[in-house]
Amino acid sequence: MRGRNPGIDLLRGLSIVLVVLHHVGMRVPFKGSALGAVLPAWFLSALAWSGYEAVFVFFVVSGYLIATNALDRWGSLAAVDLRAFYARRASRILPCLLALVAVLAALHAAGAADYVIRRPGQSLGRAVLAALGLHLNWYEGVTGYLPGNWDVLWSLSIEEVFYLAFPIAALLTRRKGVLAAILAVLALSLPWSRAALQGTPIWQEKAYLPGMAGIAMGVLAALAQARPGPDARRLLAALGGAGLFAAIFLQTWLWPVLRNGDLLLLTGSAALLVIALHARGPAPLPFTGWLQAMGRLSYEIYLTHMFIVWPIVRLAKARPGPWAFLWHVPALLAAWGLGWLVAKALSQPAERALRTRLGEA
């Protein structure tokens, strides 16, 4: 089995930074801050509003790594051991998920500000069922947004439903070409599935098919099993990096041309980039250790960062002004620290214990 790859950890680190900046920046905007005097408005806007695109990068990376690890472990997707596959996913996902839902339920019951489910048609019981039943995205699409700490679970619902079906589809199709064709249709459907949901803003953001299309793109990249040489690797990295930058930072200019195809550009570019980064091997990337560390903790940071965002936003709003944007720095550091604490105290030991108990150590 391969070890961690610093390049892919770096990509995940950049993605989780964009998610945290988004959830702070939409409440403590960069617009009108002192940064506006030195950085262009389009760049600051992308920093504050690209959390959604960052989640789709996570989808691609997750699909790539899950499929690559399965290929390394079983030789082919047609040989996947269902019990082992699900045991490993459950060991990774469930400890943090169950702990988060328990904490959020307790905060709701205590009436804590920012954590109480108040919207008509919503309830704590249904939110818990939606979170654990992997349909929180659907629940929000029907009833409206949940409080921020609940809302982050929409992407987990999509990802885990995909992984419930993925190994079964691999075993049923048996042939790599058939599975790849199905995944290609799903991956390339992204612009049309999003366009079909126009007029339903929450559901368009959180529907199953667009998110699964991003994961499918990552799995396709893994099925390609590309081992590019140095020149090809540099070309893939350049194309993937340029496409990713354009999809995230140049949306104002791309949208009139690509419309809903902008996310297909993003997922396709991310797929090229993960192939190039994975092929790079374990050589360290200079000056990016902190981002790689955030990438290694991206799951824990993603689930818990809103516990940092709310107090940081309150502190920033208590002292508004052109320098309020500086609160983004302690927000990132504190989110990293909380993610590290959760990983060390809960997710890592629980994952090891569950794998041992389930015979998947």
Rank of each mutant, 00 (worst) to 15 (best):
L129K: 00
L346K: 01
L273H: 09
E360P: 00
G75I: 03
V116D: 00
A70H: 04
A195E: 14
P191A: 10
I168F: 15
F85A: 07
R280V: 01
T252M: 10
I182L: 15
A54W: 02
F59H: 10
P282T: 12
W74G: 03
H135Y: 14
V101T: 12
A242P: 02
P120A: 12
Q251C: 00
L172E: 01
R88Q: 11
G337S: 13
Y208D: 13
L146S: 08
L172Y: 05
R355P: 03
G240T: 06
Y208A: 15
V20H: 06
N137S: 12
L333T: 03
Q292E: 15
A102V: 10
L186D: 09
V313T: 11
E300P: 00
V309G: 04
W74H: 11
Q225W: 04
A90F: 15
E159T: 06
S50W: 06
A226K: 06
Y145A: 15
F166N: 01
G241K: 02
A180F: 06
L326R: 03
P282N: 12
A131N: 02
F166Q: 03
K317S: 15
H22D: 13
H305A: 05
V61C: 10
V61S: 09
Q251P: 00
L183Y: 05
L277T: 04
P284K: 06
F56I: 04
P95T: 09
A48M: 09
T68M: 09
V342N: 00
A361V: 12
R174A: 12
G321F: 08
S91Y: 02
T252D: 13
Y302E: 03
V17R: 03
F59L: 08
E205D: 11
W253L: 13
F85R: 04
A247I: 05
L153Y: 02
R92D: 09
T288C: 14
R227C: 07
L10M: 10
Q292S: 08
L358A: 14
A34V: 06
L11G: 14
S189W: 05
A46Q: 04
S33E: 06
V38K: 02
L235H: 08
K31A: 13
A48C: 04
D9G: 07
P167S: 05
L153G: 08
A334H: 04
E205I: 00
G241M: 04
L94I: 07
L183P: 07
A196G: 11
H305M: 07
L303F: 08
G3H: 13
A113T: 12
N5W: 00
I215N: 02
A216P: 09
S76F: 00
L82V: 09
A318Y: 06
K317H: 12
A270Y: 08
L277H: 03
W253C: 03
A316S: 09
L338S: 07
V80A: 13
R234T: 12
P167T: 05
L94C: 01
